[in-house]
Amino acid sequence: MSETSQQHRARAEWPLWEVFVRSRRGLSHTHVGSVHAPDAALALRNARDLYTRRSEGVSLWVVPADRITASSPDEKDPFFEPAADKAYRHPTFYEVPEGVRNL
């Protein structure tokens, strides 16, 4: 394949969009996968057609995959370790006298 036709093809390749679905009211949007689409409007349509074929959702987000900023795995420690020693953030940290309920 010649260089020019490859460039041509690369231009035509539709970008990737990450898809998030709110499966029902009261829940957050959850990442479900991705679709390819030339633009946001079609990305939304493609996501709707693909990920909610069986009425799995009430709301959709699509986000260009290359616009997501992420922590990287090697930064796992500095990012997530500090929280690990803050056990007091979790309810099970606290002792409750026996017999006390609804707390």
């Binding site: 995959a65 290359d66 997501i68 900023t69 992420a70 922590s71 795995p73 090697d74």
Partner: peptide, 16 residues
């Protein structure tokens, strides 16, 4: 912090 995708691409830059 990097700006590569969370669910994409080889994490091959890790560690060298």
């Amino acid at each position: 912090m990097t700006t590569v995708l969370p669910e994409r691409g080889p994490g091959g830059d890790v560690g060298g």
